[in-house]
Measured scan of single mutants.
Amino acid sequence: MASQGTKRSYEQMETDGERQNATEIRASVGKMIDGIGRFYIQMCTELKLSDYEGRLIQNSLTIERMVLSAFDERRNKYLEEHPSAGKDPKKTGGPIYKRVDRKWMRELVLYDKEEIRRIWRQANNGDDATAGLTHMMIWHSNLNDTTYQRTRALVRTGMDPRMCSLMQGSTLPRRSGAAGAAVKGVGTMVMELIRMIKRGINDRNFWRGENGRKTRSAYERMCNILKGKFQTAAQRAMMDQVRESRNPGNAEIEDLIFLARSALILRGSVAHKSCLPACVYGPAVASGYDFEKEGYSLVGIDPFKLLQNSQVYSLIRPNENPAHKSQLVWMACNSAAFEDLRVLSFIRGTKVSPRGKLSTRGVQIASNENMDAMESSTLELRSRYWAIRTRSGGNTNQQRASAGQISVQPAFSVQRNLPFDKPTIMAAFTGNTEGRTSDMRAEIIRMMEGAKPEEMSFQGRGVFELSDERAANPIVPSFDMSNEGSYFFGDNAEEYDN
């Protein structure tokens, strides 16, 4: 993207840094990872977990959730003011799984939030270390993106479920800051804005008074975040219109849905970061690795190297396929839920299948599930090659597409044709070009129609051997075009429920 120079890199967003050079960025990201790792080690000690239990991804998720809940100030305040039966607002906890007599047992633990905050700050040299908290939120978000298709949420806001490739980060909490905003897809931002506008339509006082002023500035800020994701002048001009509207209503909703559809071809720039579970960072720190000293990046080879040398386990339900569970977590670790499966298959070195073909449910185990038949197995999170994460949407291309997802959002900077089903997408653009945004709409449609099938995206960008740390010898991959490109292809993934 041309304006790259004016933006802070995501590592800076990730670490609240002012302008830093590459070495400083690597050190501050490393410091953040160190903090998460030290916190995780301490929690495993508190909970008396064995090494194996500490490497269980379900335990990692519970521990991450506990610290996120302990620092969720708004919710904590709300819980104190609106006490609900049987919930102690000062405590947080969740299921911890232990191996007892050759069987997995679930144990519900409860801790004072104050105590968890103390352990977290102690692991982070006394700081609140917001960057580390956001990092864990993005890992949870990436896992949700890989596990669930947001059909219901899309339909509720009037969008087409086939636009799911635009929904990265749709389950990120509001408090995820600049680093969170960077990884949100165009569809996620559109959905947040539509929800806001709908509230304004239904509630006369939404934009009024002292609160209304705050609401208005939040609305304009979200519009600017979305505008910054678009790469064409016409899309940005249309966002200006939406932002400046005196009284946002149905016309703005129409414009936003139009823009979301246009992003299936004229893709937005959305950041991709490899955020790993805390149970990967903990053992690495415990083994003596100093992330701050060595430096770390979320968008280069580092996460690949770390996963190459990590042992992570997962509980497996009786009829689940461990290899499929591994694929789910591998995609989440690489922030690749909406990437082209052919690119992923090449990088991973084994075939990556669409969601609907995987015999696996989510990673988390519900409290009512029976533990008797639970097994555990090693997650295979290694890769054959590594590639640089991208934040450009890439230019655009036609490809055989599917009944489910009709476009992709690249996660890796790797040369390819970008699949999208042009006739299906263009069919949504018939007729409606009147109104105050008509010239911009016409211009956007013209650009979409001009998108050429034979153009290559990320020209000359390749993948790298894991021994090639400096990215000196790019390998331009070859793809098996007979395979499906979309992950949520004609899909039956479970729906995400809060």
Rank of each mutant, 00 (worst) to 15 (best):
G228V: 09
N202T: 13
P95W: 08
K103P: 02
A218Q: 09
V408P: 06
M167Y: 06
I365F: 11
A442W: 00
L328D: 08
M191W: 10
I119G: 10
F39S: 11
A366S: 14
P173Q: 15
M137I: 13
R400T: 11
S392R: 05
T433P: 11
R391P: 01
I425P: 00
Y10R: 00
L306N: 10
D72G: 08
S287F: 06
V100W: 06
N321Y: 11
E220D: 15
I197C: 11
I201Y: 01
H140V: 09
Y219I: 03
Y385D: 13
S314C: 14
M448E: 10
I36C: 05
T146Y: 07
R8L: 11
S482L: 00
K422Y: 09
E375A: 02
K229G: 09
I116P: 03
M448D: 10
F420Y: 12
N483F: 07
K229A: 09
I253G: 05
A251V: 15
P95G: 15
S165W: 00
L226V: 12
K77E: 02
L166D: 10
A387Q: 06
Q20E: 01
N309R: 15
M191F: 07
P248S: 13
V463Y: 13
I265K: 00
A178E: 04
D497C: 10
L47A: 00
M374W: 07
C164N: 13
E320T: 11
I425C: 15
S345V: 05
R75W: 09
P283V: 11
L315G: 02
E294A: 14
A179S: 12
I41S: 15
G5T: 13
N224Y: 09
N224R: 06
E192A: 04
F464S: 07
A471L: 01
N205E: 05
T6I: 10
G187L: 07
L133G: 03
G169D: 03
S486K: 04
G268L: 02
N144I: 10
S335C: 15
N319E: 01
Y385E: 02
P474G: 00
N205S: 12
G356W: 12
A336I: 04
T6P: 01
G93V: 01
F304C: 12
D16S: 08
S297I: 07
T146C: 07
R152W: 06
G158C: 10
L358N: 09
M43L: 14
M159P: 02
P83A: 13
Q168Y: 05
S28Q: 15
E443K: 10
G169M: 03
N125S: 13
